[in-house]
Design a protein around this nucleic acid. Structure first.
Lengths: 229, 229
DNA sequence: TTGATTTCGTGTGATTCAGACACTATGCGC
DNA sequence: GCGCATAGTGTCTGAATCACACGAAATCAA
């Protein structure tokens, strides 16, 4: 079967930049390319958009197919369409930006580990196509957005300590934060639910666990609340 | 001539939301559609992407062709790709966001006035396709961005008074600003060059004219400076 | 059990920034 | 020269930000 049009059309793909947080480091999910061009090189997960699915659905489908991942947050990043960005011809790619809780997905990624792996964003291999540029833009976006929207929780397990949360912000913003000021600020937003639990299996004083209060967030968001860092 | 592909491909267009500032009001440029679908309805300027041009080039070309406009600022907004957004079939549209100095372009728009016109953004007619949604998103973006990037100057004539600048911000942000605080803030950024001229032909005390200092802006921007309102 | 080690958790004071606020100055038209 | 419209200017107050240090709790080893 083939398809004929009166005018030429670019091919349309989606590519996803998926971030996860591993203990101390911010990671990005990459796929090793099985086919030419750039065979064997690492690349962002992605693929062609089907005719009957929305762009976001295409992104979700590709993540599911290529890495078994269902992201906690997925939003459009930017569309890359320079002629020449793909040696096969004109390919326009809508890039998406996703956050996942690594704890949920480390296992699946490990199963087909030959093809999918998590890399530190500060130390990623050479990427296929213009994917390095896409990654750079996604990092910028993450850095910018985390300061005025509580995205970070999508990267942490459901229950976390304030120290974990602070490390997350420090890693993303690439600068140290003051512990007391950080806690004051975060707790004053009243987005965190204090649990009657502490972390387990640590060889020092255990920290209290917190949970992100999604309901409250939705409420405050609607009310036009300001979540600046 | 026709083009055949192994898999079906969506058509790819660009659409542009062009803002201008007219005395007191924020305007958007619309084109009256000559053809079906939505014949006779107002729509955003735009059209199909050619195979050898970048997305941004396509946006510039369409603006030039349809309205004789060369925008002072043009950046990508968002890509709209829901199946069903165009009754003719699958059409994915990369939306762009543009600012122009209305003073430069009022004339050209008037020449083919049957087809292109400026409308108040608060009072625009029903639009074709999902263009109302695109316009809404562009307005949001403008509102958000103007607070931390000095975009506004792209909407004003090269020489302007501080009162004009304040009105611009007030129109975009939809709230009144305090004159003294506004001037204090803006002048403290040192992005404005004070000229030895005052406005002409006003029947009251004439205000001093200023010019935006692009060079200084580029410098400060590189240095990671913060231009919050 | 005691002391060493590690991280947790907490408050205050200094400084900076944002926001409210009202009057005199200038130029034009009559 | 008087009235009118807009230009242009400074201070004070409350809020937010930032820098900063130590006792409490839990584990581990001797």
């Amino acid at each position: 079967m083939s398809y004929t049009y009166e005018y030429p059309r670019p091919a349309l793909t989606v590519d996803c930049v998926v971030f996860g947080l591993d203990e101390e480091d911010l990671k990005v999910l990459l796929i090793r390319r099985a086919l030419e061009p750039f065979q064997g090189r690492w690349a962002l997960p992605g693929g062609f958009v089907h005719m009957e699915e929305s762009l976001e659905d295409a992104a979700r489908r590709e993540l599911q197919e290529e890495a078994g991942i269902r992201p906690g947050l997925l939003e459009q990043l930017y569309t890359f369409g320079d002629p020449g960005r793909d040696p096969r011809g004109r390919v326009v790619s809508v890039a998406y930006f996703a956050l996942v809780k690594l704890s949920d997905h480390r296992v699946q990624a490990a199963t087909d580990a030959r093809d999918a792996a998590w890399f530190s964003v500060w130390d990623a291999p050479r990427l296929a196509f213009d994917h390095a540029e896409i990654l750079t833009m996604a990092l910028q976006r993450l850095k910018g957005k985390v300061r005025y929207q509580p995205l970070g929780f999508e990267l942490l397990p459901p229950k976390f300590t304030l120290t974990q949360l602070q490390r997350l912000y420090e890693v993303i913003l690439e600068r140290p934060l003051d512990k007391r000021n950080f806690r004051k600020k975060l707790l004053s937003m009243e987005l965190l639910e204090e649990l009657d639990e502490v972390e387990q299996d640590v060889s020092h004083r255990a920290a209290r666990l917190y949970r992100f209060d999604h309901k409250k967030y939705k409420q405050l968001e609607k009310a036009g609340f300001n979540f600046e860092l």
